[in-house]
């Protein structure tokens, strides 16, 4: 098995104009764009344990350089994000080479990812992990009024830092609903219950790829990942779609569909 440095050189020699990955410069992990094989950054490229939504940088890069081919280092979650972003017309997969990294056992267990490996694995060994469902089960065991109280308590810790949105690999809108004064009153902390969080949850429906960065970023430890995970379960249950799965399958909320689909839906 070759190391990342060799892979970067290979890809640059093999038709990619630049390689996007992370570098670890004496303990400081940063995104790095490597454009030639003599780059000093090449010494510091590192898979490490850090995760970063490189897709967000890639959206800008592809827009800025429409004729360039990029190679990018992806974990399982990054790959799902790029697939979903391509369906949302943000990423062009044809101009992209993905170099897959499988997460290690410790990483996979700590993260609780449903699929901690990409389709093509260039680095690391494939391991399986089971996503945690404790929070969802806990909430579902409560009655309506208790549930509302439970969420209210969780959301009351929110300091409206927008960290969940800012780190989210799937967020790219120029005008964010969360900053719309008609939907979320400006200058109020904690934000309106439940609109702030339910708006984000609804936007994540059929879109969240369950990377868990939102929950990692949240300074108030709000169980956001479980909320969005439940939204994906609803989506799969009702509309038979899970974000980030296949490149071909379209999000049912992105097209109108056929009368047959709707009749089936209504009969349930």
């Amino acid at each position: 098995m070759s190391d990342l440095k060799t892979i970067v050189k290979e890809k640059l020699a093999g038709g990619a104009d630049a390689f996007l990955c992370l570098k670890n410069e004496e303990g400081t992990v940063l995104p790095a764009l490597i454009t030639d094989a003599d780059s000093p950054d090449l010494e510091f490229v590192d898979v490490g344990e850090s995760r970063y939504p490189l897709g967000r940088i890639l959206i800008d890069l592809q827009r800025e350089y429409p004729d360039k081919r990029f190679a990018v280092l992806v974990r399982g979650c990054d790959e799902r994000a790029l697939i979903e972003l391509s369906k949302l017309e943000q990423i062009d997969l044809d101009r992209l080479v993905m170099v897959g990294v499988a997460c290690s056992t410790e990483e996979a267990e700590a993260c609780g990812c449903p699929r901690p490996y990409p389709g093509d694995i260039a680095l690391g060994e494939k391991v399986e992990a089971a996503p945690g469902r404790e929070v969802i089960d806990e909430v579902e065991s409560l009655g309506d009024a208790e549930r509302l109280g439970w969420w209210k308590e969780q959301f009351s810790r929110c300091i409206k830092c927008y960290g969940c949105r800012n780190i989210c690999p799937m967020c790219f809108c120029k005008d964010c609903a969360l900053e719309n004064p008609h939907l979320v009153e400006p200058g109020v902390i904690p934000p309106d219950f439940p609109s702030f969080h339910i708006i984000r949850a609804l936007d994540m429906t059929g879109r969240c790829i369950d990377c868990g960065l939102c929950e990692e970023a949240c300074p108030a430890d709000i169980p956001l990942r479980s909320l969005y995970r439940k939204m994906q379960d609803i989506m799969e249950d009702k509309l038979e779609y899970r974000a980030g799965g296949s490149v071909e399958e379209k999000n049912p909320l992105s097209f109108l569909g056929t009368e047959h689909d709707i009749e089936k839906l209504e009969q349930e």
Partner: peptide, 24 residues
């Protein structure tokens, strides 16, 4: 022609989301 198809789909998701949140 098909405007209400979208309503039917969105409604399913919205109802379940509110249910999970604890609204009757």
């Amino acid at each position: 022609l098909k405007g209400n198809y979208m309503t039917a789909k969105r409604f399913q998701v919205l109802r379940e989301a509110l249910k999970f949140l604890g609204l009757e």
